[in-house]
Design a binder for these strands. Structure first.
Lengths: 148, 148
DNA sequence: GGACTATTTAGAATAGTTCTAAATCTTGAC
DNA sequence: GTCAAGATTTAGAACTATTCTAAATAGTCC
């Protein structure tokens, strides 16, 4: 279980985590993190850029990538890659999977996951398993109805 | 279980499957498929291009993408996307997972998987699950030794 | 054999990401 | 407080991966 509560002051946590990875808390990193927490729709870097820009017009694309990388590095954000196309970002660090709609491309958080213990994966000798990423594919409710 | 045997004449199968999706068997598609079966290292489109080109110098990059898409469409090849960067391709259609080495970036097939039944995933109402993709992350034997 | 359609080709175009160099900001030492 | 060192941001160029376009070619069906 994750100890992070949704009401916890994010920036304090953010500051700590950044510091822990030898990174500084800057207004830009805070803003990018804010954008991700504001709308949990797994935006692409470009979408993050546009949303951040609306509140911080000076911010540049390179900075958004830099901030996203910093946030991923310090464990505040996950990078979600599905199919070809732009990488998406998710600020929900609770253990969860992603459901990917093959029809419309939307990504949904699914609060259930397969842990390393549950999976009982038998790896060939020498491999060191650290993390299991589970991506679910299918149709989201909207597209399921339409395809009927 | 998959009924495909490793010794089955691939091109016959390929022809059938392409036809089934309304696609033709062409020398280029055969070559691309060949390249993928020859070395199971999950090459990128660019690597496929270079390998195919060595045997079929006329082939173009656009054709490689076209062929890969055709092969994916007819179920002869899987598209593997991990992290940012080029998409990789895998001709092993047996149910299996991919182990991704966080250190060197290599991809390995792991002949074990979590089926929809096993996983017992509880999706919110309306979602229609078709496929579970499991990606394992960690260190490959080589990198595990080095990091010790 | 001719018409129709699918496929391939080269190269341009686009999208996504990374790099670069200069400017700015922080931090810690004095 | 001031300065130096290092981190971060910025704009824009560069690069990489992928898709698009139009013309040429190859199959397929009648």
């Amino acid at each position: 279980m994750n100890t992070a509560s949704p009401k916890a002051p994010a920036s304090t946590d953010l500051n700590e985590r950044l510091a822990h990875s030898g990174l500084r808390l800057t207004p830009q990193r805070q803003q990018v993190h804010e954008v991700l927490r504001e709308k949990l729709d797994h935006p692409t870097a470009d979408q993050v850029f546009m949303r951040a820009k609306s509140k911080m017009p000076e911010i540049s694309m390179a900075t958004v990538y830099n901030c996203l990388d910093a946030l991923v590095q310090c464990g505040m954000v996950r990078q979600v890659t599905l199919d070809r196309g732009a990488t998406r970002y998710c600020p929900n660090m609770q253990d969860h999977s992603h459901f990917y709609c093959d029809e419309c491309g939307s990504v949904f958080d699914i609060l259930q996951t397969i842990s390393i213990a549950d999976a009982d994966i038998k790896l060939p000798r020498g491999f060191r398993l650290k993390l299991i990423e589970t991506n679910l594919h299918g149709l989201c409710p909207d597209c399921a109805v339409k395809s009927k």
